[in-house]
């Protein structure tokens, strides 16, 4: 079970929300093995993908769609942090929880989604920290100094926004479990969308122009592309605004899915 946030005696949402976040962070911190696993896995993925793009840029005369080899290394380091910091099986786990019945949690005074999201963000922070630490060192070694320190600085809050948007959206997708029995297919498709249209594997500018514009208009770009674009030396603070917009939309949308799901669950008694 995830996020067994307790809400008794709380009037506002803030108390339980903060408590859930702390609990999540403590739980993640209590599993140093899991943290090391995430860091090593991140190191492997990032070094091979960053190496691929850097090699490609060198082969292409030092530049691919406006990104230098160094910029591409920083891009991948950031985009992979944004995705790999998240629990890899979140959608499946949440789907299983819903399948098993979460009536007890639905009955608590604080909305389920807020508490759970807080716990997930809290639980993910140590992993994000580990990935960022590894990423910064790795990018410095195999790439070079960050192309634009100012842009890199705002890439950090952008990373936090990216993972939060992603978490909220994953919860919305997992909400399909209220209606479907197996959410694994939803998870696979979602993951692939983040990989390509979210810009985790490649800078969105690599896509054909029409697909690039489509991808940038979708929420997936807020989950990987935005912080990666900043880290690769593009000082575009408006990306943070776009991400914040998507975060608000994701929370509202997820809450709506869960409200509908609760009604469905109560109605069908499933």
């Amino acid at each position: 079970m995830r996020a067994p946030a307790r809400a008794e005696g709380a009037i506002g949402w803030l108390g339980p929300t903060a408590a859930a976040a702390r609990l999540g962070a403590r739980r993640a911190g209590a599993q140093p093995g899991g943290l090391a696993f995430a860091a090593v896995f991140y190191l492997m993925v990032t070094s091979v993908l960053a190496g691929l793009w850097a090699t490609a840029a060198d082969a292409a005369g030092g530049d691919i769609v406006g990104y230098s080899a160094v910029a591409l290394v920083w891009y991948i380091a950031a985009s992979e942090s944004a995705v790999l910091a998240l629990p890899q099986r979140l959608i499946e786990d949440v789907g299983i929880d819903i399948d098993d019945g979460i009536e007890a949690e639905l009955l608590r005074p604080t909305p389920l989604i807020v508490v759970r999201l807080a716990a997930e963000v809290g639980g993910m922070l140590p992993r994000l920290g580990a990935c960022v630490a590894v990423g910064v060192v790795l990018a410095r070694i195999i790439g070079g100094p960050a192309p634009d320190p100012a842009a890199l600085a705002i890439a950090f809050p952008s990373l936090l926004l990216a993972v939060t948007v992603n978490l909220a959206a994953q919860y919305a997708f997992a909400g399909a479990a209220f209606w479907l029995r197996d959410v694994r297919s939803a998870w696979f498709l979602y993951q692939k969308l983040v990989f390509v249209l979210g810009g985790m594997l490649l800078p969105l500018e690599v896509l054909p122009r029409w697909l690039e514009l489509t991808a940038k208009a979708l929420p997936f770009s807020a989950m990987a592309y935005a912080p990666a674009r900043l880290a690769s030396g593009h000082l575009e603070p408006e990306l943070l605004v776009i991400q914040s917009g998507w975060l608000a939309a994701a929370i509202v949308g997820t809450a709506a899915v869960y409200r509908a799901g609760e009604r469905h669950q109560i109605r069908t008694g499933a």
Partner: peptide, 25 residues
Amino acid sequence: AIMIVNDVVWVVFWFLFFDRVGAVR
């Protein structure tokens, strides 16, 4: 079917990659 979709996405990635980059080593 899901796994095939997953694999198609990877092929798409490589298609995009080589479309931009050309041959590498």
